[in-house]
């Protein structure tokens, strides 16, 4: 039952987060609750099935870190501070990029060994996830809690897949991680670069020197 409900909820979050994205793009277009309405639309019945179950045909295995990212986007207007701090965001982006870069080229045929198959083995990806989660929780990085939640989901069997990889990464999460990482790196570069004085500042300095 849970593997029936979970993808439906994730599709609800995807529709909600997309609506929120459009709102941000168009500077607060529509009311604050519009993303919630989009979430609710996922449950609207279409020919006997909720809309989300139709979308399920395109993807059924969404990772837990993606759910965390989507929740962060949707809940942002209601929370006083972001769901995840900058440190957790950075960990999430790096994790998505590294995991995606390691997994997808190999899964698409690069080389004779399939890294995806170790997601079924023990000790395999599950062990790496455990070590990473323990390390991040020790460092008080809240992305460690996301990995802990992924462990719960894996034990419960939220996804159709039994493969541990699918609980940790999916293509949408990896794509968002790349975008997030680019933005974070750009932000970091801006912080490091000393601000060049603008022409008006130079003018006012010259004026004050002259006077």
């Amino acid at each position: 039952m849970i593997d029936w409900c979970y993808p439906l909820l994730v599709w609800a979050l995807i529709l909600g987060a997309s609506t929120r994205g459009v709102q941000v793009l168009f500077r607060g277009l529509g009311p604050r609750w519009l993303p919630l309405l989009a979430c609710a639309a996922t449950f609207a019945p279409v020919r006997g099935l909720p809309l989300g179950r139709w979308l399920h045909g395109y993807n059924a295995n969404f990772s837990i870190p993606l759910v965390a990212v989507l929740l962060g986007v949707i809940l942002k207007p209601w929370l006083k501070r972001p769901l995840f701090n900058e440190q957790a965001d950075r960990a999430s982006c790096w994790f998505g990029c590294v995991a995606g870069m390691s997994l997808y080229p190999v899964a698409l045929g690069l080389g004779p060994f399939d890294l995806y198959s170790i997601g079924w083995q023990w000790p395999g990806v599950a062990c790496v996830a455990a070590i990473l989660a323990v390390f991040l929780i020790w460092r008080e990085n809240s992305f460690g809690l996301v990995l802990l939640a992924a462990g719960v989901a894996w034990q419960v069997g939220c996804l159709e897949s039994d493969n541990a990889w699918d609980y940790l990464v999916d293509p949408l999460y990896v794509a968002l991680s790349f975008i997030g990482l680019i933005l974070l790196l750009r932000q970091a570069a801006r912080k490091q670069k000393p601000e060049a004085p603008s022409s008006s500042t130079k003018l006012s300095a010259a004026v004050s020197n002259g006077s």
Binding site: W122, A126, A130, I137, W138, L148, W154, G157, D162
Partner: peptide, 22 residues
């Protein structure tokens, strides 16, 4: 933190009943 770390390690390392085996 210790409790959370133990939970994470247990959840990921505990074998699943329906786990596929080669």
């Amino acid at each position: 933190r210790s409790l959370l770390m133990t939970a994470a390690a247990t959840l990921w390392c505990w074998p699943r009943g329906d786990r596929a085996v080669f």
